[in-house]
Design a binder for these strands. Structure first.
Lengths: 147, 147
DNA sequence: ACTTGACCTTCCCATGATTGGAAGCCCCAC
DNA sequence: GTGGGGCTTCCAATCATGGGAAGGTCAAGT
C-alpha cells in the first residue's frame, strides 16, 4: 500500500504521515526497491489511532504517549485514563477562558446600538481596558486560540 | 517613554510591540537621536487597546480592523458590533467543538476502570475510530487548539 | 572621567501542526 | 514510448510569540 492509499484509508494526509515519521511519532515503514513507502493494515490502524487522537485534541506529544501505552500490552489502564482526564481538564480550561471572552463580548455588543452612529461602548471598553470580572488572562499571553 | 516603560504600562511585551510595528499593525513611533523608540500616552492607550483586543481572542488581522474603526471618528457602531458578534460566533463554534471532545473523552474515561489491568476502552475506541455522535471534525483538520 | 549594569537596537532562530510548491524520479496504461 | 498521476526530498510559509546573540546607549556610582 502506497502512502496515498494509506492516507485515504486512515484519514491522515500523506504530508502528515511523512511529518509524523520525521518527528518519530510513528516508525519508518518498509520501502519498495524504488524508495516508495509501503504500508500494511497494522500501519493503517496505527494511523487511524493517531488521527482519532488528534480529533480529540491531543497534542502530538501526548499522542506519542498514547501510542506507547497502546503498544504496551502490560500497560495499566489507569495510565491511559490519567492522560484522558488530563486532556479533559485542559479542554475545560480553554473552554472556560473562551466562554469568558464570548460573554464579555456579548455583553459589550448588547450595549452597542449598532447603527450608523459612531459612539460605541465596545470601543470605549477596549480603549479603557477595564478588566472587571471577565477575560482575565495573566500577563504575556499564550499564543492564541485556534482550532 | 522608552519601549520598556510602554510595555509595562500597556501589558504588551517589548518584543510584541516591535513585532506589531513590523507587521504594520501599529505605526512607527518617534525615535530619539540615538535610535530609541519613544512612546507617548496616546501610544500607550493604543497598545492597551491592542492588548485588550487580544485578551478577547481577536486575531491580529481583526485587531487591525478594530483599530481602524477606533481611529475613524465617523465610523458606524454597527461595523464594530458586527466584528464583535463575528468573534463571538467564532468562539462559540470552537467552544462547541472542544466541548464535543471533552464529552467524548469523559464518556470513554468513565468506562475505563483505570487500575493496573491493561484492558482499556479508551484505547479500544481510539483504535477502532468509531465516529459516533462525537468530535466529528471534517477532513484535514485545522492546526490545533491552543490558547 | 570611567566603569557598571540595565536598558535599547537589529538580526536570526525556534516553537507546533500544517499546508504549499518545486524539482525530479517512478509506475502503469495506452 | 509517452503521458499523467503518484511518489520522493527539500524548502518556505503560516500565526503569534519567545529566546538569544552582538553591539550601542544611558544613568548612576566610584
Amino acid at each position: 500500500m502506497n502512502i496515498g492509499e494509506a492516507a485515504k484509508a486512515s484519514g491522515v494526509t500523506a504530508k502528515m504521515i511523512r511529518y509524523y515519521e520525521e518527528i518519530h511519532l510513528i516508525p519508518q515503514p518498509e520501502r519498495t526497491a524504488s524508495g516508495y513507502r509501503s504500508y500494511g493494515p497494522n500501519d493503517v490502524q496505527m494511523l487511524r489511532f493517531v488521527r482519532r487522537s488528534r480529533d480529540l485534541g491531543f497534542s502530538v506529544e501526548r499522542i506519542g504517549e498514547l501510542l506507547a501505552l497502546w503498544r504496551d500490552r502490560a500497560r495499566a489502564s489507569g495510565d491511559v485514563k490519567r492522560l484522558a482526564l488530563a486532556q479533559v481538564a485542559g479542554l475545560r480550561q480553554k473552554i472556560a477562558e473562551m466562554e469568558d471572552m464570548a460573554r464579555t463580548l456579548e455583553h459589550l455588543a448588547h450595549a452597542c446600538h449598532g447603527d450608523d452612529r459612531p459612539d460605541c461602548p465596545i470601543l470605549t471598553d477596549l480603549e479603557a481596558g477595564n478588566m472587571d470580572g471577565m477575560a482575565v488572562t495573566k500577563s504575556p499571553l499564550p499564543p492564541f486560540q485556534r482550532l
